[in-house]
Design a protein around this nucleic acid. Structure first.
Length: 508
RNA sequence: GCGGGUAUAGCACAGUGGUAGUGCACCAGUUUUCCAAACUGGCCACGCGGGUUCGAUUCCCGCUACCCGCUCCA
């Protein structure tokens, strides 16, 4: 028996299964696909919906301190100026054509070498604690090698975004030390632009949101004024976001259109934000385990202070061991009062609460757990996938592909199978049960092929239980069915009432 | 975006300068009393565009997508 960790080319197997069983298709596939976009098929749509529903129930409906909203994808462009995304949500990149190295332009520093007031050449260095020293040393070496005499001026460290067109070909590549191989920085904003209204001009430019969070900040006062929430409280939202990623990769892990589940938890400015931050990290970890992700695949990554995003005072990522490596799943950021303050300044509308104790107004601080539905989907799929060796009655070893999805997430909760297709007594009873279950649960009726084949088919779809209507059901007293469990393949007899009780308990 | 690789049916793979097969899956039927049974029949593909050629799925070029690196985020 092998589990997912030992399966070679697990990603290929997942992509293949996802396609084969209708979980995920490439977007616009008949036109050759579109990089960074995906469609969810019938089973995938159910699974994704279940992920959203579980999160919403646990995050919003089962709590007293969190409310939900749904804001528009296109917001006033000033939202993104205030949030910092127009200016800061870009990564200008520079390529060295010789060494094939790629640098972020804002991390690649350079300086003219000035001798006796004249520019005699250029030096470069990568961002570090000693960038200026390195540049100075490089300038001295340059002067010596070129046998230039005169007074060397101190270097002036500038990053590559400040290099002019004329200067770019003169600046040496950090990799080769020779000028001429660096490209101009390609700086583009990761936000998708569009135009509102029929006229396309500068005044109509708008953006598809790159995160749902700003909706919560912009509607902060509305929620406070209309819902009687009291600190600490949270506002949650699930919705699509869009980022024009340079390199979409790893199936649905990094795509250009994705779905976020974000919650902004507002706390008093004097509250212990670090403690609250830690509590939310723990909450997220617990929740991930509750939907079936193994603790062994989860870890934490604390962002070093100097590399924090522009809005963050502290960020911890919950990492997941995907088939392609340990990568981010859930980011929990302490955003301070950054966003509300920015919007207060930009809009001229104060985003404050009144503190009854101190009789003073203050801007709340915020802790933000932000997770991608698609990433959870991928993590869940990877963790659930298993190929097992099973022995048939003759002792022959066969392989069984099974998705061990939690019953909460499984696209189909129960499959109802008449043992035989051509015996009306069986099919009628099965159809009656199916109709009854269908009112409350996602269930499937299947009478195609041999019973064993149908079990395996449901295993691949992740259906936790199969119910078989057999001859004992109609011939023996008690009206019982065979209940077959996906993971153990064990069978037992169960009544209709017991079946409903089982589902009520396990499916939520 | 740069470098390397790949692209044949729903999935996994063969194969050929004269338009393609296999397994599984799927559909119809016969059969079948619990773990991918059997038989019969059926559906379905050379990623897209151009070039060379009498003829291109095969050779060449471009594009697109996917995979592996550089880089990045949910």
């Amino acid at each position: 028996m092998s589990d997912s960790a030992e399966t070679p080319n697990l990603m290929e197997a997942l992509v293949s299964l996802a396609k084969r069983r209708g979980f995920i298709y490439a977007s616009s596939e008949i036109y050759g696909g579109l990089n960074g976009f995906f469609d969810y098929g019938p089973l995938g749509t159910e699974l994704k919906r279940n992920i959203r529903d579980c999160w919403w129930r646990d995050m919003v409906q089962r709590r007293d301190d969190i409310v939900g909203i749904e804001t528009s994808i296109i917001m006033h462009p000033k939202v993104w100026e205030a949030s910092g995304h127009v200016a800061g949500f870009s990564d200008p990149l520079v390529d060295c054509k010789v060494s094939k190295q790629r640098y972020r332009a804002d991390q690649l520093f350079w300086s003219p070498v000035v001798v006796d007031g004249k520019i005699v050449g250029y030096v470069s260095a990568l961002e570090s604690e000693k960038t200026v020293e390195e540049l100075q040393a490089a300038a001295e070496t340059f002067k010596r090698k070129k046998a230039i005499t005169g007074a060397l001026a101190p270097v002036v460290a500038k990053d590559f975004t400040e290099a002019s067109e004329a200067e770019i070909p003169l600046i040496p590549s950090p990799a080769t030390g020779e000028p001429g191989s660096l490209t101009a920085p390609r700086a583009f904003n990761m936000m998708f632009q569009t135009n509102v209204g029929a006229m396309s001009d500068a005044s109509s430019v708008a953006y598809l949101r790159p995160e749902t969070a700003q909706g919560m900040f912009v509607d902060f006062k509305n929620v406070v004024d209309t819902t009687r929430v009291k600190l600490p409280f949270g506002i949650a939202q699930i919705g699509k976001s869009f980022r024009n990623e340079i390199t979409p990769r790893n199936f649905i892990f990094r795509s250009r259109e994705f779905e976020q589940m974000e919650m902004e938890y507002f706390i008093h400015e004097d509250a212990d934000w670090a403690k609250c931050h830690e509590e939310w990290i723990t909450w997220c970890e617990t929740w991930l385990k509750s939907i079936g992700l193994p603790a062994s695949h989860l870890s934490r990554y604390t962002h070093p202070k100097e590399k924090l995003a522009f809005y963050s005072r502290g960020t911890v990522d919950i990492m997941f061991k995907y088939p392609f490596g340990v990568q981010e799943l859930w980011g929990i950021a302490a955003r301070g009062s950054y966003d509300l303050t920015q919007h207060a300044n930009a809009s001229g509308k104060p985003q404050e609460l009144f503190d009854e104790a101190s009789k003073k107004k203050f801007v709340p601080h915020v802790i933000e757990p932000a997770v991608g539905v698609d990433r959870i989907f991928l993590a869940v799929l990877a963790a659930a996938y298993a190929v097992e060796d099973v022995k048939d009655e003759k002792g022959n070893v066969e392989q069984r592909t099974v998705l061990r999805l939690s019953p909460r997430l499984a696209p189909v909760k129960v499959a109802i199978l008449p043992l035989l297709k051509n015996k009306e007594l069986l099919t009628n009873r099965a159809k009656a049960l199916h109709a009854k279950l269908q009112k409350r649960y996602a269930v499937q009726y299947d009478d195609g092929g041999a019973i064993g084949k149908r079990y395996r088919r449901q295993d691949e779809a992740g259906t936790p239980w199969c119910v078989t209507i057999d001859f004992d059901t109609i011939e023996k007293p008690g009206d019982t069915f065979t209940l077959r469990e996906r993971d153990s393949m064990a069978q037992r007899r169960i009544t209709e009432a017991e079946l409903f009780a089982l589902l009520d308990e396990q499916v939520y």
